[in-house]
């Protein structure tokens, strides 16, 4: 069924958008082109109300218990979490690298800010990603227009506020075009 078929249940609080949660795990020892990356991505839930979100979220594995090289993407319905998607092609993302142990709280705060429309940048936000790696965890938020500095600055400032990060935390912006060129996300 399409994300468009999901509707809020009776008495539920609707969200501004419908979202899909995608899970992907890197296949060890294999090069990742877009096609194989996409093949390893699965939608594990779709929601359009606050209550539907919590229902899915409470059944998901806790991010601090996720092992290995895995990613969870929460993206607006109709946008694939791929650099090549038409919503992302001209976009980019803010990247925050976190030491192990900090990520669960930061991820939840990021998701709640996105679902609650706290970024105040219209339709610009495409989705958010948590990437579990061996040495560190990385969270990122993707937006449509990398070239709009007013938008990217506003996202950065909101991100800094809602994540309540230690003062020395580095935030980097990377365009998806750069990622396509160097074939690397971070």
């Amino acid at each position: 069924p399409s994300y468009k078929d999901v509707v809020p249940g009776p008495g539920e609080h609707p969200l501004q958008y419908t979202y899909c949660i995608w899970y992907s795990k890197k296949q060890p020892g294999r090069a990742q082109d877009a096609a194989s990356f996409e093949k390893n991505m699965n939608v594990i839930g779709t929601f359009c109300s606050v209550e539907q979100f919590w229902k899915i979220y409470s059944h998901m594995i806790r991010v601090n218990e996720m092992a290995g090289h895995s990613d969870i993407h929460v993206f607006k319905g109709g946008i694939k979490p791929l650099w090549e998607d038409k919503a992302n092609r001209l976009g980019g993302k803010w990247i925050v690298r976190l030491r192990k142990g900090l990520v669960a709280r930061c991820w939840e705060n990021l998701i709640l800010a996105m679902l609650g429309e706290q970024f105040m940048v219209g339709d610009e936000v495409c989705g958010a990603v948590i990437s579990i790696r061996f040495q560190e965890d990385i969270i990122s938020i993707w937006n449509r227009t990398a070239g709009d500095e007013q938008v990217t600055s506003r996202i950065r400032d909101t991100l800094r506020r809602v994540l309540n990060l230690p003062p020395n935390t580095v935030m980097e912006y990377k365009t998806h075009n750069e990622s396509l060129k160097d074939k690397s996300s971070f």
Partner: peptide
């Protein structure tokens, strides 16, 4: 148009009691 805005504490409250306002 109007956007549906929720703050963190409201969203967390919905988790605790799903049908609350």
């Amino acid at each position: 148009g109007t956007r549906i805005i929720y703050d963190r504490s409201f969203l967390l409250k919905c988790r605790a009691s799903p049908m609350s306002n």
